[in-house]
């Protein structure tokens, strides 16, 4: 299993992501944003978290113009699996590889804490190791995590089972930290090969750090 991880100027979770996947036994490679193609043996492409280009404009708005993004779009279109975490999710929505957009958090503050999420749909490779309704504890750390999609788009997401995760309390009751539409924390595309979420599963791989619930999420990609 080969995981390629994108690195834009300002990305800061690429090494965490690498560490997490290597812990699961994967080969990994960091791919510089100026690369014009992805490693040919890529089984999973991760767009890691951070502040690409400082996020001084809109989060992910500049990164989508990086040379590597053409290759990412082609890879996704041909069915390649793509996972965007935090800033990676923002980049993928900006690049229109995922529906919706991420706005500034409702309270306008950056939020960093462990947060519970409820699995909404496990009929995909990412969450197949979990059951619908399972509650996992995963760190969030974002300023622009307020997911927005219009009503029509939301209906489509629901109809196609594209809503992956919602923010909840530990009992699975909706608890919305950032104002996201319908408390949505993660979505996928219609074809279910491109995934994006604001929470950081790569930060929840070891009990010593507060949670190991991210293992079951990332492991889904290992068995295709």
């Amino acid at each position: 299993m080969k995981v390629s991880i994108l690195q834009f100027p300002g990305t800061n979770c690429e090494f965490d992501t690498q560490y997490a996947f290597e812990k699961l036994g994967c080969n990994t490679e960091i791919v510089w944003h100026k690369a014009e193609s992805l490693p040919s043996d890529t089984d999973l492409l991760v767009v890691a978290g951070g502040f690409s280009y400082g996020d001084y404009l809109r989060s992910g708005a500049i990164a989508k113009f990086s040379p590597v993004m053409k290759a990412v779009a082609e890879y996704a279109k041909s069915g390649g699996k793509v996972l965007g975490i935090c800033n990676g999710f923002q980049v993928l929505t900006e690049a229109r590889l995922l529906p919706g957009a991420l706005k500034r958090n409702e309270g306008l503050h950056f939020i960093s804490k462990h947060h519970h999420l409820r699995v909404e749909n496990n009929d995909n490779i990412f969450l197949k190791k979990l059951n619908n309704g399972d509650v996992v504890n995963i760190p969030i750390a974002h300023h622009d995590g307020n997911y927005y999609i219009n009503e029509e788009g939301l209906k489509e997401l629901e109809a196609n089972g594209q809503i992956l995760l919602r923010y909840t309390d530990e009992d699975g009751n909706i608890k919305n930290p950032n104002g996201s539409v319908e408390s949505i924390a993660g979505v996928c595309n219609k074809e279910k090969n491109v995934f994006g979420l604001m929470p950081h599963p790569e930060r929840a791989m070891e009990a010593v750090l507060g949670s190991a619930d991210g293992i079951a999420m990332l492991k889904g990609f290992l068995e295709s």
Partner: peptide
């Protein structure tokens, strides 16, 4: 302290709000 990313780099064992010293592995 929730406005500070306290967990990036995946080393944080004990952080702000957990009283006394903070700890990384």
């Amino acid at each position: 302290y929730t406005q500070y990313d306290s967990m990036v780099q995946t080393n944080t064992v004990k952080k702000g709000g957990e009283l006394d010293a903070s700890v990384i592995r």
